[in-house]
Design a protein around this nucleic acid. Sequence first.
DNA 1: CCAAATACTTGACACGCTGTAAAGTTGACA
DNA 2: TGTCAACTTTACAGCGTGTCAAGTATTTGG
Lengths: 196, 196
Amino acid sequence: MMSRDSSNTRSRILDCTWNLLESGDKKVRMSDIAKAAGISRQALYLHFPTRAELFVATTRHIDSVKNVDARLADSRAAASGQERLMAFISAWGSYIPEIHGMSVALRAMQDSDAEAAAAWNDRMQAVRHGCAAAVQALAAARMLRPDLDEQAATDILWTLLSVENWEHLVRDCGWSQSHYDSLIKRLAGSALLATP
Amino acid sequence: MMSRDSSNTRSRILDCTWNLLESGDKKVRMSDIAKAAGISRQALYLHFPTRAELFVATTRHIDSVKNVDARLADSRAAASGQERLMAFISAWGSYIPEIHGMSVALRAMQDSDAEAAAAWNDRMQAVRHGCAAAVQALAAARMLRPDLDEQAATDILWTLLSVENWEHLVRDCGWSQSHYDSLIKRLAGSALLATP
DNA sequence: CCAAATACTTGACACGCTGTAAAGTTGACA
DNA sequence: TGTCAACTTTACAGCGTGTCAAGTATTTGG
């Protein structure tokens, strides 16, 4: 039995990074993370070569703990095109608050760090693919507004579901998650659905 | 006649700062601005004590050049509540691209600089007041959806009109300004207007 | 039991950018 | 001639990231 296991330390670092980011303190320095994990700042660099790579690894860690893929996959099981759209909105919308701290940190690094920007971009493209799939299901069921092509509809849904809109409503305006959820569903519905 | 006038230099600095920010180069350092303005980095600090205060002064400079107050005020002249809403959306929506570089810079400084955060907040609150006024006009004309109070309606309009939504659609998705404009109008209409 | 590998520590330092400080230059103006 | 204002050059402190080198436990294998 190893009291100081490399993989234990690694996951402790990731957990501490996650906690610090989610605690809302904007200033999360390498030394803060090291202190929280009970190691020296240099030991951090033995596990993660740069701050950006540490954050990228933390996003992957959060994803695996929270099982985001499975959650989004569930929305694919919905029966009708409309139900599927709403299920996707619920799934992603309820995931946003759980990754919000991470999201703020990654976006703050976008200007200074290409890798962080790429990581955030990747995640947003994944959401976009989910949007595109929901839109495609809508189009297949002939429930997509006739004046929209699939691309435009995907753009709209993707924009409505942005983390920034969640921040505006929930964080800045004090909306509850359920009010946020029902507004976005209503907006998406009236923006995308054909009115028979 | 003074070939090196203090106020000339000051406005040259502000213009150069504006240009650099709007040119999209993310890294706008004090030395970059100094070089562009043809003065030493230290002379910059004679005019503006910090980078944040320089950027705040630049926003005020842009506002006065672009006459944002007058533009937003025009929307108040509209006849009906609905026309006023649409005029406000057009006015603010068409202003966003002109201050976009500035907006990116100010938001990037939010974490590290309290003054920059306050400056950005101020501007967003000004937009919010415009939203609130448009919503109030809508309510007075009994055109506001009955299930919305004025506060919630203001939150929604303010969120729809966020710079981030413009960025998503126009910058990231390649929408034209007029497509952006008509989408936001449609969304705002279906979100806020009573259906008689 | 010795040796090597592993995981970490301490201390020092280079770099880039912001902001400060001090002493010198230039031109206008009275 | 002297002074003031605007600006210059040079130097340096502070902070955070990332690098480097040398040292210290603890474990593991021959």
